[in-house]
Each structure stands twice: as structure tokens, then as C-alpha cells.
């Protein structure tokens, strides 16, 4: 034994190759000026939203819990990692700011991201406990309350800027960085859900009592789902803070949590593919509306405020709920994400 422990299937290699191909395409378009930096920035944000949506899907879609405070975990990851990197940037004043961005800087960044993820996971572990006793709507309120409490706390800690936010975060996140981390996150969660542990999570969603009575330790698995989901949300938060170079309490409010929730629902509860597509579609829609609405207003000689964007979003959420059963993907996955050996076993592909 001990020769080759990790097994990478051909299909997974294809998936990774396809994804890398897209990355190269984007880099190429950016270099030739077809994609402006603004478009690349939207892609960056979309990729971060992919991590957020897929990790929330793990909690809500696959495990059937109901968390609506996901950005609370992202906030924890963002503030934790950004505090570390800004602190290190400060205590190494010999290096001018720009020079901090070198290979050592990246090692620090990766470690800081991981730390952010781990602290967020710790909080997720704690938030998992109410899920043991509470179902559905009550759990929603608790997670909502948790998200607000986290925000209030950061709002009141002067060390991280309080209501002004944490400023001057080094810009470590770039397209390649974000892309690779998003890819790894997606693969990790995909591997989890297509495993016996993933089936244990699904069985909790399907019927919790029956799940316990075929031998699944539902307590442990529910907490596991929250912990892992929070870990990845923390990573996403860290990436975002180092992309926008600011962590501000209002970034992590209820509204953003709901946007992520919309992505999960629009893409399909229990579909990673759906979450990926929806994260891109809705991020682009959001940015599109941000530029299109004022333009439309100019045409009609009225001022159309940014609030209309949210009006569109909320209508979208209502419409999805009223007319859906299977929105984008339902519970299906694109073929490349389904392991070969699972191909016929579920209703996935």
C-alpha cells in the first residue's frame, strides 16, 4: 500500500482542464482588451459568490437545514484574515506596501485565509448546536440573529475599525488566486456530497428521524454541515476582503445573506452546478442592473435609484418561489461533476 493514495478520475481531470481553459480564455480576453478590468472584477466577485452559494447549499440544500445568516461566517473569515495580513503589513514597515505582494506575502495570505476559514468553522460549529433542537423557521431566525450579532460585534470593535470598517487591506486576491481557491472549494464539496457522508447529509434532509434510525448520527452530521459550510464561507469572506481591500460591517448584512440564498434557490437546492450558474448569472445581473438602470433613467428623464435593483431582486425571489419547483437544475448536476462510479446510481446527471 501507500503508493498512490489519492485517486483522481479522468472525469475530474476533464473538469479541471475545462475550468482552467476558461480561466485562460478570460486572461487572454483581458490581455487583449476584450474584457475590461471591470468585467474581470465582476468575474472575481462571481467566483467568490460561487463559494458562498455552494457552501450554503451544503447546509440548506443538501442537509435540509435553514441558515439565513451565511454572511456572518464570511464576516468572521474576512475580519480574521484581514486583521492578520494588515497586521503583518504594518509590522514589516521596511517593505513598502507594494513589495509585500511577493511570494512570502502569498504564503502569509494563504495561511491567513485558512485561519479565517477555521475561525469561521469554529463559529459554524457553535451555530450548529441550535440546529439540533430547532427546525425550519426557528432555525432561520436564530441564524438571522447570529448574523446580526456578528455584525454588531464588528461594528463595536475599534481595533477593526468599528463602523468605519477595516481599511487598507493588502490586495492579495486576484483572478488566478480566486479561481484556484474556488475550484478547490467546489471540488471538495462535490467530493463530500458524492460520498457516503454526503448521503448521510441527504438522508437528514429527506427524513431526519428515519435517518437516525438507519444508524446515522444526525447530531454529528448536522454540526459537520454547519462547520464545513462556515469554513468555506470564511474563506470566501477572506478572499473578498483582500479583493475589495475593505471589510465593512454593512458588507455582511442580512441582505447579502439573502442574495446568496437566492442563488442557492435559483440554482436548485442540492445542485452544485446550479449554484455555480446562479452565482454567475445573478452577479452579472446585479452589476448589469447597476449600470443599466441609471442609463434607462436617463432615457426616460427620471432618476432611477439603486433601490430598484433590489426591487428587481426581491421580485425575482418571489417569482422563483411562486413558480418554481425545479428552477435551474433541480437536484441535477452537470455530468463532469458526477463521479463515474455514481453515474447510474442517483438521479444526478
Amino acid at each position: 500500500m501507500g503508493k498512490k493514495i489519492f485517486f483522481i478520475s479522468r472525469r475530474m481531470l476533464l473538469f479541471v482542464a475545462g475550468a482552467l481553459g476558461m480561466l485562460l480564455l478570460v486572461l487572454f480576453f483581458n490581455a487583449t482588451g476584450i474584457f475590461t478590468d471591470y468585467i474581470v472584477q465582476i468575474i472575481n466577485i462571481s467566483l467568490i459568490n460561487v463559494i458562498l452559494a455552494v457552501s450554503l447549499n451544503l447546509i440548506n440544500g443538501f442537509t435540509g437545514q435553514f441558515s439565513i445568516g451565511h454572511m456572518g461566517f464570511a464576516a468572521v473569515g474576512a475580519y480574521t484574515s484581514a486583521t492578520v495580513t494588515t497586521l503583518i503589513a504594518k509590522v514589516t514597515p521596511r517593505l513598502p506596501y507594494t513589495e509585500f505582494i511577493n511570494i512570502n506575502g502569498y504564503i502569509v495570505f494563504i495561511l491567513a485565509l485558512l485561519l479565517g476559514g477555521i475561525v469561521a468553522a469554529g463559529i459554524g460549529f457553535l451555530i450548529g448546536f441550535p440546529s439540533l433542537r430547532l427546525k425550519g423557521d426557528y432555525l432561520a431566525i436564530i441564524t438571522l440573529g447570529f448574523g446580526e450579532i456578528i455584525r454588531t460585534i464588528f461594528n463595536n470593535i475599534d481595533y477593526v475599525g468599528g463602523p468605519r470598517g477595516l481599511l487598507g487591506i493588502p490586495k492579495f486576491s486576484n483572478l488566478i488566486m480566486i479561481f484556484v481557491i474556488t475550484l478547490l472549494s467546489v471540488i471538495a464539496i462535490r467530493n463530500l456530497v458524492f460520498s457516503t457522508h454526503g448521503r448521510a447529509l441527504l438522508s437528514i434532509r429527506e427524513n431526519e428521524l428515519a435517518s437516525e434510525l438507519v444508524g446515522v448520527n444526525t447530531v454529528r452530521y448536522k454540526i459537520t454541515a454547519f462547520t464545513i459550510g462556515a469554513f468555506f464561507a470564511g474563506i470566501a469572506g477572506g478572499l473578498q476582503a483582500h479583493l475589495l481591500q475593505i471589510a465593512h460591517p454593512t458588507q455582511y448584512g442580512f441582505l447579502y445573506s439573502i442574495l446568496v440564498l437566492i442563488m442557492v434557490y435559483a440554482g436548485g437546492m442540492g445542485s452544485i452546478t446550479g449554484s455555480i450558474i446562479a452565482a454567475f448569472a445573478l452577479t452579472f445581473l446585479s452589476e448589469g442592473l447597476r449600470t443599466a438602470l441609471p442609463g434607462l433613467g436617463d432615457l426616460m428623464h427620471v432618476k432611477i435609484g439603486d433601490e430598484w435593483r433590489m426591487v428587481v431582486y426581491s421580485l425575482l425571489l418571489i417569482i422563483i418561489m411562486l413558480f418554481r419547483t425545479e428552477v435551474l437544475m433541480g437536484m441535477r448536476e452537470m455530468k463532469l461533476l458526477v463521479p463515474e462510479e455514481e453515474e447510474h446510481h442517483g438521479q444526478h446527471a
Binding site: 457516503t196 448521503r199 441527504l202 429527506e206 435517518s211 446515522v216 437536484m331
Partner: peptide, 12 residues
């Protein structure tokens, strides 16, 4: 486990 396959019901 209604929306899972028959096989998955057993595998769980």
C-alpha cells in the same frame, strides 16, 4: 428518503 434513488435509500 423520497427524492433519493432506491439504491441510495439502501446505501445510507
Amino acid at each position: 428518503f423520497g427524492s433519493l434513488s432506491v439504491l441510495d435509500n439502501i446505501r445510507i
